[in-house]
Design a protein around this nucleic acid. Structure first.
Lengths: 216, 216
DNA sequence: CCTAATCTAGGTATAAATGCTTATTGCTGT
DNA sequence: ACAGCAATAAGCATTTATACCTAGATTAGG
């Protein structure tokens, strides 16, 4: 039961546009088309959330244009749900009825931008471009982290236990005593850990483990 | 010439209040006094910036309440200058004339909060308390990082060179070959590095170096 | 000029980690 | 019941790292 997801298809980024006003969807959609940005429009937040949860597209490569005032589910509420669903795509709020508290709330929740209508087209384009840019960088990081976590998941309990002792800086001898095991056994587990984690030195091991840990 | 700064005087946090309206300074000052928060008031940004640059107080323990609209230097401009001066204290904007773009700008620049007047007193107090809280955590981290960087600065050029090779995962033998030096010499430098960095194992060394590096 | 620091390196000894082989035990899924 | 994996552990050879000692060359500072 190995984790065998080599989903490395780095396709074009998708811009998801969520707005209850169809006129806005049309105009923004055309704007995006005109500069060659693949996009999908959703007429309400629920529609987008459904699409998102049902794996209909690359959940990582792209960004989201979100209206604030929408029926049923507001933009902020949608942002929260996406956060909970593990979505890491940058969110750009685009709204007509934006007040300061809402904007502050959105930004504190990690929004990439908060743009008020009417806006210069270039402003939106720049924001999108920047969002896609940062997203790409984040993704590269996340991919590495995910790979490492996959490897970590392939460790047995014992191996994991020994790994933690190793990165703590304990010598095999010490680990052996603490776990009431033969030093030889620790050495074997240690070798397995190095293998499975795909590293050639203790330094590398510590590094990959550190920057895949949540404390980052 | 050892770096001997053991400035560990963790005094009470200072709330710096910057507003051109003296009535506001008075009322906020009294509010802070009433809940036991040490505070200093400044009637314009320049006054605060001067005080900040002239080391008149602990530059790290506290937070800043900043008005947006002020003569000469705006709140946002002040935020930028503080950023450039290396100030890491959280900034809470408090303003009467707040528009969405300004709020978004402030938040993107890392503001902790953006509060519009008039506000409920508790709202400001909560914001301050939270800012001081997060600042304290950040400070603990920064202190450790600074200590490590002090140690790093005490390394000679060679030692630094060897350190980098070590955390890259290279064996002494390899380093010796690469630097056209005796393996013996590398071993000695390595031992000095371990001493100066105050660690007992390679794992510890890698960890302290990693999380004191700017890539964090 | 002399001292201190730095960089260099050899000797010797021990400790630790690595690689390779073999082997027993217990658990799990077919 | 049998195959496969995980965990345990011993032997043996080799490589690496450490610890402690001495010591020459160079350089920067007083």
């Amino acid at each position: 039961m190995q984790n065998n997801k080599t989903e490395h298809m780095s396709s074009s980024p998708m811009v998801h546009v969520v707005d209850d006003d169809e006129a806005v969807l049309d105009s923004v959609g055309m704007l995006l088309d005109s500069i060659g940005l693949i996009n999908t429009c959703y007429k309400d937040a629920q529609e987008f959330l459904d699409a998102y949860s049902e794996t209909e597209f690359d959940k990582h490569n792209g960004c989201i244009l979100l209206d604030i005032r929408m029926p049923f589910i507001s933009g902020i509420e949608c942002q929260h749900r996406l956060e909970q669903m593990g979505c890491r795509m940058p969110i750009i709020f685009v709204t007509e009825h934006g007040d300061v508290p809402t904007a502050v709330e959105a930004m504190k929740n990690g929004a990439a931008e908060f743009i008020q209508k009417p806006f210069r087209e270039q402003l939106l384009i720049d924001a999108i471009q920047k969002a896609l840019q940062t997203n790409m960088k984040n993704q590269k990081r996340l991919e590495i982290v995910n790979q490492t976590q996959g490897k970590l998941a392939s460790l047995t309990n014992r191996e994991n236990q020994i790994l933690n002792a190793i990165v703590t800086g304990k010598a095999n001898k010490v680990i052996a005593i603490e776990l009431h095991l033969s030093q030889r056994t620790i050495e074997i587990h240690r070798a397995h850990v190095m293998d499975k984690m795909g590293v050639n030195s203790l330094a590398e091991l510590v590094k990959v483990v550190i920057d895949a840990s949540p404390t980052d």
